[in-house]
Design a protein around this nucleic acid. Sequence first.
RNA 1: GCCCGGGUGGUGAAAUCGGUAGACACGCAGGACUUAAAAUCCUGUGAGCAGUGAUGCUUGUGCGGGUUCAAGUCCCGCCCCGGGUACCA
Length: 936
Amino acid sequence: MEYSFSAIEPKWQRYWAAHRTFETATETTKPPFYVLDMFPYPSGAGLHVGHPLGYIASDIYSRYKRLRGFNVLHPMGYDAYGLPAEQYAIQTGQHPEITTRQNIDRYREQLDKIGFSFDWRREVRTSDPAYYRWTQWAFVRMFHSYYCLDTRQARPVAELEEVFASEGNSRIHAACSETPVFTAGEWAAMSSRERQQILMGYRIAYLGDTMVNWCAALGTVLANDEVVNGLSVRGGHPVEQRLMRQWCLRVSAYAERLLQGLDRLEWTESLKETQRNWIGLSKGAEIRFALSGAGAGAGIVVFTTRPDTIFGVTFMVLAPESDYAAQVVTPDRKAAAEAYIEATKKRTERERIADRQPTGVFTGAYAIHPLTGDKIPVWISDYVLAGYGTGAIMAVPAHDSRDYAFARRFGLPVVPLIEGCDVSQASFDAKEGIMQNSGFLDGLTVTEAIEKAKAYIEDNGLGTIKVNYRLRDAAFSRQRYWGEPFPVYYDADGMPQTLPEDALPLALPDVDKFLPTATGDPPLGRAARWAWDSINRTVAATADIDGKTIFPLERNTMPGFAGSSAYYLRYMDPHNPEALVGKDANNYWRAVDLYVGGTEHATGHLIYARFWNKFLYDIGAVCEDEPFRKLINQGMIQGRSNFVYRIRGTNTFVSARLKDGYDVTPLHVDVHIVDNDVLDLERFKAWRPEFADAEFILDDGRYLCGWAVEKMSKSMYNVVNPDDIVARYGADTLRMYEMFLGPLELSKPWDTNGIDGVHRFLKKYWRLFFSGNAFAVADDNATPQELKILHRLIKKVQTDIEHFSFNTSVSAFMIAVNELTELQCRKRAVLEPLTVALSPFAPHICEELWAHLGHTQSIAHAVFPDCDEQYIVENTIEYPVSFNGKMRFKKILPAGLPPAHIETAVLDDPQTAKYLDGKPPKKVIVVPGKIINIVL
RNA sequence: GCCCGGGUGGUGAAAUCGGUAGACACGCAGGACUUAAAAUCCUGUGAGCAGUGAUGCUUGUGCGGGUUCAAGUCCCGCCCCGGGUACCA
């Protein structure tokens, strides 16, 4: 009987669905294990072979854990809000919801063909009101929370109001925007609007005038992780800095916890490092510089990580956007300074980065050096950022390359502070050497000087020790249609108010067009009477406001990361109408045990989700502080493009190895008409009308194509779709081949060339069960040799899966099946455990054979076989022999045997003889589990 | 610039603790079966040299040093590739 994957695979996929094989219940006596994939954005292009790589790995792991007795939660869903569906809607008028649903259906169809063990009953879609209700809910809670720096957690804003009323804000220690100090009396005297404005500065979800990344081409604001090199990640459009009133999340308040939490996670070092860089802890000091001739209050506070270099300060620099800039400029310099500030505003971030030539303008003001009393000129330059530190720096040109460039450009003095350093060509930035020209720091090393300078600054009231984080608050408004609406309206004072939680979800309204309004409002501005009646009724009922008043709703929508920041919690309890996740379900599953996904989310999703989760933890909504215990990054699968070489000006194509002799133009050719880099000439001629008369210069009778590794994309004709592979080889082959390609975390080009080997393996494995056409598995006892093959395999596969080393497991299966084929081993005692061990990798074929073996239940309910070490014991008598001739210290005896003493080793090997200095060893001790040890 | 990874045959890659480098697979070459093809199976396959041959010798994990009886693996100094990050003071 032939191995017919096309009959077997749909059959078992239907069986799993019909028998609810992979539906997971919460209440059970088994230990829980939560395996999660990063859910996909359902794009119109469908899945290509790269997408399922991580899903296959997590599926193998899930199925394995299930066989080892765990209750496994392995869900899947869709990150359904996103820009492409909206842009498609703008072009075609088709509602993004329709596009999204179609794409999801297509994804589902493709995923189902691969035979995943997802519990689809738990599916989550971020655009589903039943789900985004909880996204809106979290936002409402963030709005009503502030971050207390004493208890290091989010607390209700209501608590703040009480404190303000009783004692003002002077003793409040919170993460907040710049806020004036006020007393209880002053608070009482404030209008409701003024109070709301004060409170806004404390909220975790707050409306703030902040510098945002404005992308004119997309017509929206972008978060920092959505901008790379001054261009938008989506579409590559230029992005400029703009001051806008936007919803923001106070992610920066959590910087310290986000940093410290990393230590407890089983993530790759490189991913943790990426997050550490992004959070960007720097330890230093804030130092106050008084202004020459100005009033007592005036002064400039700078942040520096190098307080040891304070004696080398020869000027100061302010960021153009900084508040200092306007305050400090002297009247005679006002025009020049304003011109400069205007000019920098016009430049995009990209232009600023591209132009390394420093620019700047003198303010006319002088600061007083706090130690020497010298007058130091104060400049404005855009190399200083308003958003980091204090927006002002003390410039030490001798020991900072940026200050150095600026000093050289504007002829400012450079004072070297380290003995023997040469600053004639460049600054000396390294933190090494002995201090000089530095008063009380002279003679110290740089490291010592940093500490001493910090202590001096604190002791003498010149400033404070300070840690700074690079991590900034997240811009949370998008001027888009296809996203979660904010559950916010603006009251009679024009201040934002949240809808009551029981009024959620606030549904996304229909609009006539998906574009901004004529007045520049976001698309939601088109929803003329969007839900206003019902909303205002709710507001009236709860806030005792005249029901006829129309309050405007917030017209921005939330960004993509909003919906993906808590979806892993919803899977635990997907249909709960009372809570994002119920207490019981949350206490049972707790957190994601294994999260599989790409590194591209390191500074976006994986920061936001951790932030979001920590917030939910603070308000008692979830029981774990960190959402993802272990994280594996799968590599990207790139495309492998093929090229043909057309001789310029002709319709003649020359084979790759001969192309150097001609003047050729390489052209992408569809990888589907190329087999092992050999072009199918007839199909090539049929591919494009202009190639119908193509002529070829062949190499040894064949046309060899060139190849290159590129992104998988339509325009390169290198997209390989999993459906094609499944149709040709079956899902089991696809699954095993993707694992066989190499280590999971490595990026690699898709190359169909090797897939035959894996397919051959499955056929061989199938044939082990059959003699001719008859199923022929005997109940005879297995021989020691057969058991050795089996148990070695089990041990290998077990350790490999635990280490996510699936590629070597596939090899191990191949070796075992080859050996068993050689032995003609058709025994239940061997094939049954082998089938269970293989089932996570190739579930369909294993189910089929499992049924042939007489089982009536799915193999998913079987138990993964244990390795019995006794069958893989090496024969100890061979040891002295192996020692004779060649050195083999690394013969390891299995554990559980007594130590063996071998006194008769013959040492012919010259290298060993040298080591032993010509003398024979007194004895050779072989300790189980250890390397052979020689005693002289 | 800084911070992480990584560099092994024609190709994808193994080598879990410093112990026979290249498992397994692709490709290629030769062969069996077949009218033929597909499918399947067998043999060979890092490089170089010697030999009719079994085989033997030399060399070999980016480069240069070092430690060790023994180095792909450890140490020092380079080169190259990939990723992250960046006027972050």
